[in-house]
């Protein structure tokens, strides 16, 4: 896993492009000084710092094969994420990273792959999809199940068809829709029976709100996906990102160091504990 060179100090990351994806979500492309590459593993995150405002952990959602082009999809929900989302081309953000332990893309080689994403949870999984499609032959069958609030809230709509064409089964569902939407309506767990993968030989990667991940993992294990091969990416209050500040503790784990990606086998006993 790539380690940040000087983890405490922000580096300059210039915004090259910004695109509004949905009502409250933007995707930024960034570049370090001198277009220095920032090698990362899918599932790792950076700490982004709009000058003087504060830092926020944001998953890297670019292509691992293009480490000089740093891509982040940001949902503007707080002061810091709003300032990041508002960064226009030419603006410079502070960046620390990459941090954390990401998705098991290497362990998944030779397996079927099931990706289940909810809302902005698709962003941290995008590098997995790009890596999988770049080495499509190394994996078995592969499916993406994606749930969003409404069709207008779905991310990367322009890419889903391209992914489909390159050998990824893509099923989408939304919570609320009118007749213009031709995909499914309902929670993302309802798509699981339709995923064309063999549970026993599948590595599953799940990202979304806590509740969505918990119910998804339960449904997956009920359908024969081994808990040791169901991986979730957790969100807690990550501050230092280098296992020194204690904020992201989740029971016996420090999520910034041991996660954010952990197996359901490890998480299951913890998720039943309230306010852990």
């Amino acid at each position: 896993m790539a380690l940040a060179p000087d983890p405490m100090l922000p580096r300059r990351a210039r915004v090259l492009a910004s695109r509004q994806d949905t009502r409250d979500t933007w995707t930024l492309e960034l570049e370090l000084d001198g277009a220095a590459p920032l090698p990362f593993a899918p599932g790792q995150f950076n700490m982004l710092w709009p000058f003087g405002v504060g830092e926020a952990p944001i998953s890297i959602c670019g292509d691992p094969a293009e480490p000089a082009r740093i891509v982040h999809t940001v949902r503007a929900v707080g002061a810091v994420s709003q300032a990041i989302a508002a960064a226009a081309p030419g603006a410079v953000l502070g960046l620390r990273g990459p941090f954390g332990h990401g998705w098991p893309t290497v362990q998944a080689i030779g397996h079927d792959v099931l990706i289940v994403a909810g809302g902005i949870g698709l962003a941290p999984l995008r590098p997995v999809i790009l890596e999988l499609l770049a080495h499509r032959g190394q994996y078995g069958r592969a499916a993406l199940l994606y749930g969003a609030r409404t069709p207008a809230d779905a991310l990367y709509g322009h890419e889903l068809d391209a992914w489909r064409a390159r050998g990824l089964q893509v099923l989408t569902t939304v919570d609320v829709a009118d007749r213009a939407w031709t995909g499914a309506v309902g929670v993302v767990t309802r798509l699981i029976p339709r995923a064309e993968v063999d549970p026993a030989r599948t590595v599953a990667m799940v990202c979304g709100p806590d509740v969505m991940m918990r119910f998804t993992a339960q449904e997956l294990t009920a359908r024969g996906f081994p808990a040791a091969r169901v991986h979730l990416s957790l969100e807690r209050n990550m501050r230092c990102a280098v296992a020194l500040c204690g904020h992201c503790q989740y029971g016996p784990t420090l999520l910034c160091r041991d996660g954010p990606v952990l197996t359901w086998e490890r998480l299951r006993p913890l998720t039943s504990v309230r306010e852990l």
């Binding site: 749930g147 919570d175 309902g186 929670v187 709100p209 509740v211 969505m212 119910f215």
Partner: peptide, 14 residues
């Protein structure tokens, strides 16, 4: 019903 309850939670919403 369980699926509908989750759907009602508006998990992805603001």
């Amino acid at each position: 019903l369980a699926a509908t309850r989750l759907q009602l939670l508006d998990l992805y919403g603001p």
